[in-house]
Design a protein around this nucleic acid. Structure first.
Lengths: 344, 344
DNA sequence: TTGAAAGCGCTAACAG
DNA sequence: CTGTTAGCGCTTTCAA
């Protein structure tokens, strides 16, 4: 008798068992199976045992989709994030994933590449009903969209761009700018420069501008100015940043300290300064913003905005809203702190 | 007459329209609605127009879950990844997200923190039926699991840990080690050290070991040795790495070049070397492995393994398998290249 | 404690 | 071309 190894890929695609098979095998109705799964207390111990045996024997696992339809919820939340080229999104995502790992909730990622796409997602997601809630990272949500989300009862927490109708996590960018300035002033600097990314016209608010605002305000408070020549707004890419840094460092009265509105830009400045033979922090002090993982590797002084933590908080807020749909929108401020490392 | 702003969150939670409402409004049966959605050709232009009008008027969007059940597919793929603390996973994920963005396929992230969890996911995912396919990043998939996945007809592509039954993307770690060695030898170094993470006992293969193997082999080929004192296997965390680097740099015959099996470790070495007053690359040359984003910021010479690209490739392979379920497993090698920057 | 049966919203034969 | 109808797999009344 020849036995072929039927273990492998051959044969029918082995459809997984349904509640019906389990019912048949254990000699009860499908309702009872459902009960031992969802309300074990309502089933007699005897049958419960029998059903469990059948479940184990068959290796039964409830189909998530079916469950979702019947329950009208999915145990899945969506995260809408800019196409994640920037590490800061990733770190928030990491916080989110971490917070979710202790639940059975799945995480669906929607990356958007343009602002119109944001509209599209936010318009269709609540209707398609394949997520129970939404976290929107660093994307401006228009008044219209916010209303729709709210109206459709889609719990949503916004990170960075707040809206009164929806839960949000807010960053006090202005304050962050102040902190950077104060730190540098304390270090004795008087010629300070600012470097941030350009303001995309469509956006409602612009973090870099707010950071600059706070920076400028603190300087003024200390009797210092922020001359236009010391301010650069450039596209958030390596090359333009490098060029701007070079210009600043090679002017006749170069700044002795720079505040970059993001760690990424700060790191480019750092690299550029070194290439130009400047010692950091002796010739040039640098402060970044974000406190990315890489800030630590680069030993960069920066304003920490608790990226991972903010992700965890967002999940927590979302879950609480899921449990209590009627509760009013919550607006939480994420505290900023200065992390001093070797670049100042 | 007072009109309250009813636009906002008040009133019933505005459940989104179903195919039934659309049918009623347009005066046809639900089947016809389904047709204009899925097979417009089979519907007369006249009714099609009428239905579309109703759809627009109601803002109807098909419920994904319902569709999924009826079709037995979900338009969703899952990515199983180690709890993503390490940037390399993120970059692969980025490639995956990017490749998916041109489709309508959703991306569900399953982060696993322990190897047992991997088993759990791989065992239940195909049965729960909420993803059509799977990409597993840098996680060892046992023979058992591979068989199950295959048997249940769950298209899966493995990144880094191959298995003959499933599609895979493979990295030639040994070759990468060789490349690092050859590069450093070419630069004239004769005292080379290796630094990698420890081998977690459960894992089937261990990339760092393979990289070391290649490194050693190339050295031998050039008549050089890799003395035990020059080899460090330490937990992949900053502090142990820093300590190991310090030890190596302060021994009496310190190496003049180091190959770290990951960029993360290489960056720690870089930082440590600088703190100890060593000039890079004059006193110490460093080569990393991965080519993370941050490698560029740090100007680190490294072995690039095309992380983003590998994510994109995985998606492509998965999609092709989805279309052609019977096609045999495909095993693709991702090419490695040396990226020379300022640390060598 | 249990079973029968009615959905959940949509797709896909099968008849007209 | 269009309507009827039987599911998809599970949850949840409502009776028994």
């Amino acid at each position: 008798m020849k036995v072929l190894s039927q273990e492998d890929g051959m044969g029918a695609p082995a459809k997984s068992p349904t509640i019906y098979e389990v019912a048949r095998l254990s000699g009860v109705s499908i309702a009872t199976i459902s009960r031992v799964l969802n309300a074990p207390g309502k089933v007699s111990p005897a049958t419960r045992v029998r059903v469990h045996a059948a479940i184990d024997k068959l290796g039964f696992i409830p189909k998530a989709e079916a469950r979702a339809r019947a329950l009208s919820r999915t145990a899945r939340i969506g995260v809408v994030t800019p196409f994640f080229t920037a590490p800061s999104f990733v770190q928030r995502l990491r916080g989110i994933a971490e917070a979710l790992s202790s639940t059975h909730i799945e995480l669906v990622i929607y990356t958007v590449d343009s602002l119109e796409h944001v509209e599209g997602y936010l318009a269709s997601l609540p209707l398609r009903g394949n997520v129970d809630g939404l976290i929107v990272i660093s994307l401006p949500v228009g008044e219209q969209q916010a209303r729709r989300l709210k109206r459709h009862g889609m719990p949503t927490v916004l990170i960075e761009y707040p809206n009164r109708l929806l839960d949000s996590l807010e960053i006090d960018d202005v304050d962050g700018g102040c902190m950077a300035a104060e730190h540098l002033i304390r270090k004795g600097h008087v010629r300070l420069a600012f470097l941030g990314d350009t303001h995309p016209p469509e956006y409602a608010i612009h973090p870099a501008s707010l950071r600059q605002k706070g920076f400028r305000r603190a300087l003024k408070g200390a009797g210092l100015g922020l001359p236009p020549a010391y301010v650069r707004s450039i596209p958030n890419a390596a090359e333009p940043t490098r060029r701007a840094a070079t210009e600043l460092l090679t002017m006749k009265d170069p700044p002795t300290a720079m505040f970059a509105a993001s760690d990424i830009q700060a790191l480019v400045v750092l690299k550029t300064a070194r290439q130009l033979g400047r010692r950091v922090p002796e010739d040039l002090a640098i402060v970044g913003f974000d406190d990315l993982d890489m800030a630590e590797y680069a030993d960069l002084t920066t304003i920490r905005q608790q990226l991972d933590e903010s992700g965890r908080m967002a999940v927590q807020i979302l879950l609480s809203h899921l449990e209590e749909p009627e509760r009013p929108a919550k607006h939480v401020k994420v505290p900023l702190t200065l992390v001093e490392r070797s670049t100042t």
